[in-house]
Design a protein around this nucleic acid. Structure first.
Length: 272
DNA sequence: AACCAGGCGCATA
DNA sequence: TATGCGCATGGT
């Protein structure tokens, strides 16, 4: 990968094994929308980003080298060797199929609170509606970043609200869970910033203390928000994959990166 | 117009 | 430990 600065912003050449469409469209992040010009527009870490991928590389519009290195490099997991990783996965017949059908999916490293909150909202819900609820959450309670863009509201802000205050985002029964999570995070009863450096089991136990957070939401938070690549979220789709293809458990070749393998299997199975 | 969605809490055995 | 049910809301 070669990182260059040009008149558009930052330009990445020769990026191996990275597909922006797949990465932003595989159900791990909910604040990205593709414009009809083919440019992805999204918000993370309080920054608006416009990004697109062409045959020649990836353009991060209006981004400085500093912002790229401080935020987006890790957000898009650009320093992990996915070629090598996927090669290991290919020791397993089914994973080989998934990796070859959908090469270039990266696991995003999102903010812990946003990830936790987003996956609380995801339970018993579908992706278009999850995106809608999160959009309204940001519009009502986030900080304006432009005419149409808002930051993801912090746990401190949400912890001040009541279930009734959240009514306009139409989160349904999940509203009380969002507030419990915000209060525990704001009080420091659960330190979200420490989860990344905790042993997986320990971190999972912490998260499960929150009402409405079970093992699935906990594992999604740890995988997509804390960089714990051995967290393995099991939802309905992955449950099907496990029953159909891995009745005796995961293959040895995914050890330490179960979560990344999960993302390939999840996306493959969901595209039936 | 039913069915179901990247689950979880709670009750019951 | 293991099932089963209800949940708010709305996309398909």
């Amino acid at each position: 990968m070669e990182v260059l600065k040009n008149e558009d912003g930052m330009f990445l050449k020769e990026v191996n094994c990275f597909d922006l469409d797949l990465t932003l469209n595989c159900g791990q992040a909910f604040r990205w929308y593709k414009t009809n010009e083919g440019i992805w527009h999204g918000i993370a870490f309080g920054k608006i980003l416009e990004i697109c991928q062409t045959d020649s590389g990836i353009i991060f519009f209006h981004v400085s080298a500093e912002e790229f290195n401080n935020i987006w490099r890790s957000y898009f997991d650009l320093d992990r060797d996915y070629s090598n990783l996927c090669e290991s996965f290919c020791a397993d017949r089914s994973l080989k199929t998934a990796v070859e059908l959908f090469p270039g999916i990266h696991i995003l490293r999102q903010e812990p609170w946003e990830t936790l909150c987003s996956f609380i909202i995801s339970q018993n819900n579908n992706i278009p509606r999850i995106k809608g609820i999160i959009k309204r959450l940001c519009e009502f309670f986030g900080e304006p970043l432009s005419a149409n863009d808002f930051s993801f509201p912090g746990a401190e802000r949400i912890s001040m609200l009541s279930v009734d205050d959240l009514a306009p985002i139409r989160a349904g029964f999940r509203a009380k869970y969002i507030i419990d999570a915000a209060q525990k995070a704001a009080k420091g009863e659960i330190d979200l910033d420490r989860l990344a450096s905790m042993p997986l089991e320990h971190a999972r136990c912490e998260l499960i203390k929150i009402k409405g957070v079970g093992s699935k939401v906990a594992d999604c938070t740890l995988l997509y928000g804390c960089g714990q690549t051995d967290a393995f979220p099991v939802d309905v789709w992955v449950k099907r994959v496990m029953a159909e293809l891995y009745p005796n458990g995961l293959p040895e070749c995914v050890k330490g990166s179960q979560g990344i393998a999960q993302q390939y299997l999840f996306h493959w199975r969901r595209q039936q």
